[in-house]
């Protein structure tokens, strides 16, 4: 043990350090603060109440509601699949595991426009699944199910990867201990594994939620942004800009921006809690 200095990171503010800090802050200001602030100022000059009215007039609230429903469905689906998938990929060894592992990352590498196109080619008119769908009488593309499908695809990796990392760090000691004490594998999961991965699960779910609310390219292509049927918060903004309903577009944009800030705060808290507990 050496002498513990009171704060090893105490910064001595040499001129070059001040300059570097100023440069970084200026960079972040140019890219983040100023644009974000100007959005707020923009909405303020339109008048907040007028903006809310305009959003309503242009049919923004149902679109936002639809987005929220899609996001919640994605969180639930990807939560279940993510936990099961993480356990499978981390705890099991089997032929084809590496391939599945690569597949999980693919949604991140693909442009959402291409995601939309891929789903059109499978489920759309003249697509691979058309005979099956028409026999069942289902309609997926340009309808609500396509929004869910595209969003679930795009948000697939978040819970899975976060939970995977927690599982790798945890190891199997506690699970093995539970087994020696006579716990069944179901009891072990609910009483040991799930409580241990809960922070990873929450973190991944928050990422999923944020990403699902902001999804645009894929739902635009696959859903077609049909007013009152497949328009979402983001495609609403897109259409509103196109139709020169600026107040409605900026208002909805500010709502989404505020939501993302809230998610950031949640994520930051989760990170701190995790840092405290490990």
């Amino acid at each position: 043990m050496s002498d513990a200095r009171p704060d090893p990171f105490r910064t001595r503010w040499l001129p070059r350090r001040v300059a570097l800090l100023a440069l970084v802050v200026a960079w972040m200001a140019l890219l983040l603060f100023v644009p974000l602030g100007s959005l707020g100022v923009g909405v303020w000059t339109f008048g907040p109440l007028a903006v809310l009215d305009q959003i309503g007039e242009a049919g923004g609230w149902p679109a936002l509601g639809r987005t929220v429903v899609v996001a919640i469905v994605s969180v639930v689906l990807n939560g279940v699949v993510g936990v099961a998938g993480a356990i499978t990929l981390v705890r099991h060894r089997f032929w084809g595991r590496r391939l599945l592992d690569m597949l999980v990352d693919l949604p991140l590498a693909v442009s959402p426009v291409m995601t939309g196109l891929a789903f059109l080619l499978v489920f759309g008119r003249g697509g691979l699944a058309e005979p099956l769908l028409s026999a069942l009488g289902w309609k997926i593309t340009f309808a609500f199910p396509s929004l869910v499908l595209a969003t679930v695809f795009v948000t697939l990796p978040f819970v899975l990867r976060e939970v995977s990392h927690v599982l790798v760090e945890l190891g199997t000691d506690e699970e093995a201990a539970a087994a020696t004490l006579g716990a069944s594998s179901r009891q072990t999961f609910w009483r040991i594994t799930l409580p241990n991965i809960r922070h990873g699960l929450t973190y991944g779910s928050t990422l999923t939620l944020a990403r699902a609310l902001g999804e645009f390219g894929a739902v635009l292509v696959v859903g077609g942004a049909i007013e009152g049927r497949t328009d979402t918060a983001t495609t609403f903004i897109f259409t509103a800009v196109d139709e020169r309903h600026e107040p409605a577009a900026y208002g909805m944009a500010l709502i989404l921006a505020a939501l993302s800030m809230a998610f950031l705060v949640v994520l930051e808290r989760l990170k701190r809690r995790q840092a405290r507990e490990t």
Binding site: L39, G214, T234, F238, A253, S260
Partner: peptide
Amino acid sequence: PTLVAGLM
């Protein structure tokens, strides 16, 4: 949402 970023 990056659409919002573009709008900003």
